[in-house]
C-alpha cells in the first residue's frame, strides 16, 4: 500500500482543456443546444451518459469542465442516488447507485428541476391524508413508508 504512494506524482493543471478523445466536445455542443431549447421552448432534455462512448478520463474531464453548482441532493431509494446541478445552471447530473453501491444509471438532465426530485401528486395526496390522520390523533403519528 505504501509502495503505491511512493510513486512520485506531479499533478499539473492542464494548460488547455484536453478533449482529445473528441466525445466530450460534441456532447458539450449538444448540451448547449439543449439549453437553448430549454430557454426558448421550455423543453427539457435527458442524456444517458452511459450511452456515450467515453474514453478513459473523458467523464472526469466533462465533470471538471462543467463543475458543481449550488444545489445537490441525496436520495435513498433502492440504494443511493446523487443529484447535483453543474456549475452551469440548468444542467443537472443524476447518478443512481444500487444497494451494493454500483452505478446503475448516470444521466444528465437539462431542465429546471430533475423529475426525480419533484414530489409525485399521489404522494402529496397520501401525505395529506396521513398528516390529517396524525393531527386527529397525534399519538398515531407516523411517516409514510414505515
Amino acid at each position: 500500500m505504501n509502495a503505491l504512494k511512493s510513486i512520485p506524482v506531479l499533478v499539473e493543471a492542464p494548460a488547455t482543456r484536453d478533449f482529445c478523445y473528441q466525445n466530450t466536445l460534441p456532447l458539450l455542443h449538444e448540451i448547449s443546444h439543449a439549453l437553448r431549447r430549454l430557454q426558448q421552448e421550455q423543453l427539457p432534455t435527458t442524456i444517458d451518459l452511459n450511452a456515450i462512448p467515453f474514453g478513459p478520463g473523458d467523464e472526469q474531464r466533462l465533470l471538471e469542465f462543467l463543475g458543481r453548482g449550488e444545489v445537490s441532493a441525496h436520495l435513498e431509494a433502492l440504494g443511493n442516488s446523487s443529484v447535483w446541478e453543474s456549475g452551469y445552471p440548468g444542467i443537472w447530473f443524476i447518478e443512481h447507485r444500487n444497494e451494493s453501491g454500483e452505478r446503475v444509471a448516470f444521466q444528465m438532465e437539462i431542465t429546471t428541476l430533475p423529475a426525480i426530485l419533484a414530489t409525485h401528486p399521489d404522494d402529496i395526496a397520501e401525505s395529506l391524508s396521513s398528516l390529517q390522520k396524525a393531527l386527529e390523533n397525534p399519538s398515531l403519528g407516523h411517516r409514510i413508508g414505515d
Partner: peptide
Amino acid sequence: GVTRRGFLKFCTATASMMA
C-alpha cells in the same frame, strides 16, 4: 417498500440497461 422515486429510479436504470 419501494417508493415512487425508487420506482422511477428503477425505470431509469432499466431504460439505461436496455440501451
